[in-house]
């Protein structure tokens, strides 16, 4: 076999592993979400299906599979079908460029942890894809031919456009410091506690708030604000198509957490020198340790996302726009300015 087919096979296997991992992460986050919300509200949460209710997400998915798939008579059938696929596909596709650990060398062969972690436009690719993810939600709202769905879809597009700006501008400061768009380079640049969160605290906060808006999580879950919009963009969805939106929401949350971890929390960098554990760089043990620390960082961030959802009430729509355009955007620009000036002086 020639080299191209080997690369394709390798990418395919990695993609399957990553998708499997994402499904597990989504299931785990659903479980954690329900447990954390229950604990915050002095309830117990799911505890009947399996030990401690651990199998609850699987029971939920099984139920969704069995539900009737309803398409409203007046809906645009084609777009109605394709919208959840866009949402979920985009959520998974982002993982193509995320490095899960440093590369390892076995018998002079370099093995990457990730499908294409070294691609030199990593961040641009992720920003582009998350923007495509908006199409899923907007199309879902529009194709349902329901006024509430349409409002949800419109809100989502307006919200995403507003917050993508400040998100991108917050990123520019990180890119200025690293001098590269590749996620691997950005992570490598943060070795030894030179995490970007300490260098860019303002940028971190802007990025964090924007990623809440990007992933449609409370307090910015206006596209699906239940009290005012019934179910928002997914009002007319049922069965596994609703399940796909549901899954996409949690996959997006994991993506956002991974991205925050990569850009500001040192990605797969160990929080202590790897020599303490006797680990050599570019060995399997080292990669596993790095992967474990990335997973811990992502888990903490996912917990944070969930924690915020059950603490802070939803923003009003005008407040959301005010925050995005009048606060975060100027702050992000100021942040770029400061970063650029400091970097110029230091150079």
């Amino acid at each position: 076999m020639n080299e191209i087919s080997w690369i394709l096979i390798e990418a395919g296997v990695k993609a399957l592993i990553i998708i499997g991992m994402m499904l597990l992460v989504a299931a785990a986050s659903v479980y954690v979400e329900r447990k954390v919300s229950a604990f915050i509200q002095l309830r117990i949460g799911p505890n009947r299906v399996g030990p401690f209710g651990l199998l609850q997400p699987f029971a939920d998915v099984f139920k969704l599979f069995l539900k009737e798939d309803i398409i409203p008579a007046a809906a645009d059938r084609w777009f109605h079908r394709i919208a959840p696929v866009i949402s979920l596909g985009v959520a998974f596709a982002v993982y193509a460029v995320i490095p899960f650990a440093d590369y390892i060398v076995i018998d002079d062969k370099i093995i990457q942890f990730g499908i294409a972690p070294d691609v030199n436009i990593g961040i641009l690719f992720i920003l582009a894809l998350t923007s495509v993810g908006v199409y899923g939600i907007t199309l879902a709202g529009w194709s349902s031919n329901n006024k509430y769905s349409l409002l949800g879809g419109l809100r989502s597009s307006a919200q995403m456009i507003s917050y993508e700006l400040s998100m991108g501008l917050a990123l520019v400061s990180v890119i200025l410091i690293t001098g590269s768009l590749s996620l691997t380079d950005i992570v490598r640049d943060q070795a030894g506690w030179r995490w970007n969160i300490f260098i860019q605290p303002l940028g971190f906060i802007i990025f964090l708030v924007s990623s809440f808006a990007e992933t449609n999580r409370a307090p910015f879950d206006l596209p699906e604000a239940e009290p005012e919009l019934v179910g928002g963009f997914n009002t007319e969805y049922s069965g596994m198509k609703f399940g796909m939106f549901f899954l996409a929401e949690y996959a997006n949350m994991a993506t956002a957490s991974a991205l925050i971890a990569m850009l500001y929390l040192g990605g797969w960098q160990l929080p202590f020198p790897p020599e303490w554990l006797g680990l050599q760089p570019h060995t399997l043990a080292m990669a596993l340790a790095q992967f474990a620390f990335l997973v811990i960082k992502v888990a903490v961030l996912i917990f944070f996302f969930i924690w915020v959802r059950w603490s802070i009430p939803r923003f009003r729509y005008d407040q959301l726009m005010n925050l995005g355009w009048k606060v975060l955007l100027p702050l992000a620009i100021v942040n770029i300015l400061i970063t650029a000036v400091v970097l110029y002086i230091l150079k």
Binding site: V36, F39, I40, Q41, L42, R43, I44, I205, W307, V308, W310, S311, I312
Partner: peptide, 24 residues
């Protein structure tokens, strides 16, 4: 906002360890 949000988060976090009301 940020100190107030942190306060709110602290409150909900403390609630996670209180005894539960649920009757099995």
């Amino acid at each position: 906002y940020i100190p107030e949000i942190a306060k709110g988060l602290g409150l909900t976090f403390s609630y996670m360890f209180r005894p539960k009301f649920t009757r099995q």
